[in-house]
Design a protein around this nucleic acid. Structure first.
Lengths: 231, 231
DNA sequence: TGACATAATATGTCTATACATAATAGCGTA
DNA sequence: TACGCTATTATGTATAGACATATTATGTCA
């Protein structure tokens, strides 16, 4: 027994159950908050919280005046966590190793400029590094840091601590965009210890602080990599 | 001006700003709800909602008695929506086409049985289909449906409506597991109109209704595919 | 010193009430 | 009929007050 008082969790789960068991069919209008609060013997605020969470999960759709209905095509969202590579590797019980491959300050190439919306003269720090799990190549990191947004990155030392961990500590972001796709290994094939042309899993991430771009990174994994998330 | 009364959004955004601008550093303890409610001139419940959302986003960490602190390694979560292939394609302004390739009822192969935790005699419906965008192959769908859990799938007609849309309407799920990886095209290479051995992006999804598995599906895209999500 | 009970405290949740806001429905008028 | 105003309604948000719960800090006793 959780509590004598009706909890928003109990209400949420019961409503979720009714939808799953098709008591309330997709597209159907469900009772209003007032009615539910009577049925469950709870305050409307409590029912509201339950419904709000279900709406966030995409199970129901709510509109003022129109009421709440079971989502027709539950556009559900999966969440996946964005851990540091090191944490990701250590969580698997593997030994983490980091190797800095190259680091230089350059003028932004046109392609990167376009992606980040930078001026022609923008300066970038370009870092290439390798992350290993149990001595096996795990991820090749190819990163550009916008020095205008993060001046401290100009002289940061990435030989011991990777730019990923350094940025997390030193340059918080407000927005991010993630892209994932499959590609065939080219220049990085030797580094990842795979055949040239072998499939690789590529994650790309751009982060911003407000309107200003912080960094663009390509993270390339061999095809043994699995990105997993549960719902 | 949003409202004269302080809103939880305003509070949430202000706290978010303080973290982003490093007024409150990673690991630092931030004022308690009581103190913040005084500062912002709001009720504690309002501050609570603001903080709760930030905690959900992974920006702060909260513990009873210990208080609230700025996350050291913001284990932030990205969310990505799981739309129907049709919606995904139509959202790009492309014409959607669906083609059923094969459909049969079989005894579960050992590999699938293991993944879904099924008994040896379990019956499955195995469906293979192709989804096209502007007449170009977009996704090859290779699906197994557990007939024990979804008996109605035994006689369902998947020639016009794909099993994906059919299941969404007919068999809601409670849990799901998603896996993504890169692979090289083998049997499906012709269907996707790519070279044999070309890189493909593979998404795998298993859904459950309570404890019982509903379906396992492999969704295979050519390497031009991009999975995008924003935060 | 160490184990254990106890007090203190910040967050977690619930209630009752009130007002805000979006969106629909219905009415009246041109 | 077409348009626009207005009343209605369900959700959205805020408040004050209360109790619940997890966890830390403290104190007591062996």
């Amino acid at each position: 027994m959780t509590t004598a008082r009706s909890s928003y969790r109990a209400i949420r789960d019961e409503i979720s159950r009714r939808i799953a068991s098709r008591v309330w069919l997709p597209g159907a209008l469900i009772p209003g908050e007032e009615a539910l609060s009577v049925e469950f013997g709870a305050a409307r605020a409590t029912v509201n919280r339950a419904l709000r969470e279900l709406a966030e999960a995409g199970l129901i759709e709510r509109r003022r005046k129109a009421g709440t209905r079971v989502a027709l095509h539950p556009v559900r969202e999966a969440r996946f966590v964005i851990p540091l590579v090191r944490q990701e590797i250590e969580a698997r019980g593997a030994a983490y190793q980091y190797r800095l491959l190259s680091s230089e300050t350059i003028k932004a190439p046109a392609l990167i400029r376009a992606r980040l919306g930078l001026a022609a003269e923008a300066q970038l720090r370009h870092v290439r590094a390798l992350h290993l799990a149990d001595r096996q190549p795990y991820q090749f990191e190819d990163r550009y840091i916008v020095l205008e947004t993060v001046p401290a990155a100009k002289n940061a030392d990435f030989t011991a601590i990777g730019p990923n961990e350094w940025l997390v500590e030193s340059a918080p972001f407000t927005h991010a965009e993630f892209t994932f796709h499959a590609d065939s290994a080219s220049a990085e094939s030797e580094l990842l210890n795979v055949e040239k042309g072998a499939p690789v899993f590529v994650g790309e991430r751009i982060t911003w602080l407000g309107e200003r771009p912080i960094t663009l990174v390509r993270m390339i994994h061999p095809s043994t990599y699995r990105m997993v998330t549960k719902l």
